[in-house]
Computed example of a mutant assay.
Amino acid sequence: MTKRIDQADVAHIAQLARLSLSDGELREYEDTLSRILDVIEVMNSEDLSEYPPMDHPLETVNLLRDDVVQPGIDRDVVLGMAPSAEEDYFRVPRILGAQ
C-alpha cells in the first residue's frame, strides 16, 4: 500500500467539507482514503473492454403502467365528505398569520 494522500490533503478536504478533525482523525482518514485509492487503482487496472457499458446491472424495461384516463370522483361527492367546505373549496383552519 502506497500513501497516495497525506495529512495535508485530508486537512484540506476536511476544510472544504467544513469538518473539524483531530490529529488522530486526520491520520485515520489518511489511511482510509489511501486504501480507497488503492482499491480504485486495482479496479481501473482490470480490462473490461469485452463488457459493454451499462446504466443498470439488471436488464430492465419500462416498469410503469400505461397512462389511462379514468373517471374521477364527482366534486360534490368529495366536498360532501369533507368536514367543512365553502363554495367549491375545502375549508381548513387558518395556520398562517394566526394569532
Rank of each mutant, 00 (worst) to 15 (best):
E50H: 15
V77P: 04
D67H: 05
L21Y: 00
S22Q: 00
P53H: 04
M81E: 08
M43D: 12
L58P: 02
I95K: 11
L58R: 12
V68W: 04
Q99H: 09
S45P: 04
V61M: 06
A14G: 04
P93T: 07
L16P: 00
H12G: 11
G24D: 13
L16K: 15
P71M: 01
E30A: 00
D31M: 06
D55P: 08
L48F: 14
D76E: 06
R91T: 08
L64E: 15
A8D: 12
L26V: 07
N62L: 09
T60Y: 04
D66M: 08
D76Q: 06
S84V: 06
E87I: 02
V77G: 04
D31E: 10
N62K: 07
L79R: 00
A11R: 05
D38K: 02
E87T: 06
Q7S: 10
S49M: 03
D76H: 00
V77D: 09
E25T: 01
I36T: 11
A14F: 01
H56V: 02
I40R: 15
G80C: 04
H12Q: 10
R65S: 12
R94E: 11
Q70L: 14
A82I: 05
L58S: 12
Q7F: 04
D74Y: 07
E25R: 07
S20T: 07
L48H: 13
E86Q: 05
V77K: 05
V92F: 15
M43R: 14
D55Q: 13
V78L: 14
M54K: 11
R94F: 11
H12E: 11
L64D: 13
H56S: 08
L48N: 13
E28H: 12
L16V: 11
S34F: 02
V78C: 00
T60G: 08
D6G: 13
L37H: 05
P57K: 13
Q99I: 10
D9C: 03
G24W: 00
P83C: 07
M1G: 15
